[in-house]
């Protein structure tokens, strides 16, 4: 297992957000996490990447390294990049500077240039926009920049929080196509989505999260056919 989350408990004050969540992700997989608003999807991602502190349970990296208690910048250093919900581009910095920040822990300019070339290969539009300020990019371009920025850290595990949020269907399809490409080149992906159909179409396996608990887990194709999933998340 590349990442295994065991019995994770997280709460905001008295409110329990995650109540014993267990999720495991194998090398090379795309794993989808679907669920309604407020189910705890973003909380799970933010806890894995060190932005939130868990109350109980464990998060094991490669079966041995405990991530609980590490600061977010230390988790990045292990090879886990997180594309946050709402993209969180630095609006006052140029696209190039945003990308440079994604590779902040790499000090060699040569290596960074190489990685940037690769990101420009995935997202040619970013090369055209590289001197433009992040805040002036369109929503789709910002999402590409956010993913490209995370790829600058050369992650082994990419955490994606709602990459389809607020984007036109055509753009969403394009983004998911690139997610597949990134995965095909060897990066493991943990994908959080409200767009359950899209997510389960690209994923190998999936988890359904409901009010802080994993209700269901199966291969993506089984979940797409599952009657409860259809009713609750796929519009019948």
């Amino acid at each position: 297992m590349l990442l295994s989350v065991n019995n994770l408990e997280v709460s905001y004050g008295a409110i329990a957000a995650l109540q014993g969540v267990s999720v495991s992700i194998d090398r090379g997989e795309i794993v989808a996490l679907i669920g309604a608003n407020g189910a705890g999807k973003t909380t799970l991602l933010r806890t894995i990447s060190g932005l939130l502190k868990a109350k109980g349970g464990s998060v094991l990296w490669e079966g041995k390294k405990e991530l609980r208690g590490l600061a977010a910048h230390e988790v990045v250093g292990l090879g886990i990049s997180h594309v946050p919900e709402g993209r969180q581009i630095f609006p006052h910095l140029s696209a190039r500077e945003n990308l440079m920040l994604g590779g902040y822990q790499e000090r060699s300019n040569g290596v960074l240039r190489e990685r940037m070339e690769r990101v420009f290969g995935l997202f040619p539009v970013l090369a055209e926009r590289s001197e433009q300020r992040g805040g002036t990019l369109s929503g789709g371009e910002q999402q590409m920049l956010a993913i490209g920025r995370a790829m600058m850290g050369r992650p082994r595990l990419l955490l994606l929080d709602e990459p389809s949020l607020g984007l036109a269907p055509l753009v969403v399809r394009k983004i998911f196509q690139i997610i597949r490409e990134i995965n095909a080149e060897g990066t493991t992906i943990f994908l959080v989505e409200q767009n359950a159909h899209m997510a389960l179409t690209v994923a190998h396996r999936g988890y359904v999260l409901q009010t802080g608990r994993v209700m269901l887990t199966d291969t993506a194709s089984e979940l797409l056919e599952h009657s409860d999933v259809k009713k609750a998340y796929l519009g019948g």
Binding site: S49, G50, L51, A71, A72, H73, V76, G77, S81, H82, P84, Q88, F90, P91, H92, L93, E97, M100, L101, G102, Y104, Q105, R107, R149, G153
Partner: peptide
């Protein structure tokens, strides 16, 4: 400089900056 870029990032948002690997 790299440190200056980190400073400009942190002045926008702590959490996103730390996701970049910056020790805020």
């Amino acid at each position: 400089t790299r440190q200056g870029l980190a400073l400009r990032a942190v002045s926008y948002r702590f959490d996103t900056s730390s996701l970049m690997g910056i020790n805020t």
